[in-house]
Write a protein that binds this DNA or RNA. Sequence first.
DNA 1: ATGCGTTTATAAGGTAATCCGATGAATGTC
DNA 2: GACATTCATCGGATTACCTTATAAACGCAT
Lengths: 299, 299
Amino acid sequence: MNVSLRQLRAFVAVARTGSFTLAAESLFITQSALSGLIKELEQTLGLKVIDRSTRRIHLSDVGRNLYPLVDKILHDLDGILDEVASLKALKKGLVRVAAPQLMASTLLPEVIAAYARVHPEVTIRLVDCVVESVISRVFSGEVDFGVGPEREPNSDIAADTLFELPFMAVFPPGHRLAARPDLRWADLMGHPFISLQGQFTERLTGDLRQAVRDLTLAPTNEVAFMSTALAMVSAGLGVTVCIPYAASLVRLYRLEMRPLSDPVVARRFYVFTRDGRSLSPAAESFRAFLHAYVAEHPF
Amino acid sequence: MNVSLRQLRAFVAVARTGSFTLAAESLFITQSALSGLIKELEQTLGLKVIDRSTRRIHLSDVGRNLYPLVDKILHDLDGILDEVASLKALKKGLVRVAAPQLMASTLLPEVIAAYARVHPEVTIRLVDCVVESVISRVFSGEVDFGVGPEREPNSDIAADTLFELPFMAVFPPGHRLAARPDLRWADLMGHPFISLQGQFTERLTGDLRQAVRDLTLAPTNEVAFMSTALAMVSAGLGVTVCIPYAASLVRLYRLEMRPLSDPVVARRFYVFTRDGRSLSPAAESFRAFLHAYVAEHPF
DNA sequence: ATGCGTTTATAAGGTAATCCGATGAATGTC
DNA sequence: GACATTCATCGGATTACCTTATAAACGCAT
């Protein structure tokens, strides 16, 4: 029995209004179109569901039994379609974003606050974790997408460049480095260098050696979190480097940031998504918003 | 959002099978037709519900939420359509028939038994009542149709002739009337006449006076039920008349029936339905069966 | 009984949805 | 890189649905 939704909607509209003419109006079609829908429905079912003449309309016995059941189904379906429309219109939605701790405590809260002003009904759930967890959380589906620095390519993960920014020197106000007009990596060599554990230091060391053969970065301390590093710099225990997106945190510690050259070493940050998997409307919206925000707010 | 049932069925089939090709087979359409249905569904909804390549298929986030809800709706709808199909195929159904006591204790039980042998899943509910109630029960919708003798026409009630049969004399075996070769109404005049209350006698008296001016039927007793009349005839308290469809009851009382002429007075019996209202498949089936039964079993 | 206003049914023609068969493009495996 | 298989697209045909016009039916008033 190949009945159609249009036919069922026509039937319910007639049952509700008691008139073909009024039912047609309620469905925004002409009376003759509605008459044809009812005729085809009855032919497909093989029995009458509406007894009518030009002056009277009644549901048949079968029609009377059918009406509340079909009415409920259409009501449920319309509820589902409304739900989808709400998701599409960003009238509701949930976005889960994984990001490393530094991202999660500097850039992203700003972007999320700005986004909430535009789309208050969408919930952004920030999942802060170590850099190495970002991609695995994306892969597992635990989050909609992740934000973080470049890592080994993975065929199941798509990486979309968010920004590429250079490292900058960070030191306390009044530090001897503050007096130099143009800072070079070599200038940092005479000072205790505080770095981050893991690929941060490995990649940095590799990049420097590749650019200047005898430039060797020997961290005097390797800590897990940038906030620890900044606190130590603030305490006069050395200097560090970081990417400009963390400027807000550097200012919080009342530290100074200066560009570094010879060489300029940059890091790319990406939005990671599962390859071949679409984002929900809300996630796609926030992803695009993040890209636009970063493009509009140079650090 | 004008989605169609075909599109929703396509979506659920893909979700269930994990393949466009297998989903198309399960819906008895080609793979390209199914591909088009999914494409149109996503265009109508304005978002992706299925992420796919030539080698992989996943439901999107929205698709994953949508699937169980749509699946349930389609399951419920198919249940309803199966119900309608069962009603149409007479695999289920209830028919309520109103009939006068005499009809209800002679003809109709026979017909219902015969019908049950052909359509065991249909329930026939016999509502026995006085003649005058038959039409009002049809009118009120309390029964699907009624069976009974002619009464004043009513524009809301349609009357479809079931049979037209003549009155016959009823008397005990060995009665003086049994010796006569051809009985005439005048022959009954010399005997106590037991009649039925109400329009039975009024209509009969009117018909007889209309045919033969000085033929006056003066019942010596008027009772409510034919069974009472037959019992009294059996006890030798008089004679009566009745319509041949009640022959089984007359035999039960071991009485004899003979045709009556000068005049032949016939009564029409009808199937009464509400005008402009269709019968359910089961009711229509039983109504047709009743007509056929009566045509095939002359009394 | 007749005329009238209004409602449902039908006809003709047009558009949208759905379908088929053929084939292109993509993809994982060998 | 070749191959088998799956999804996407194209062109054409059919079906479902729609509009406008109009016929048929019907309850009411006269």
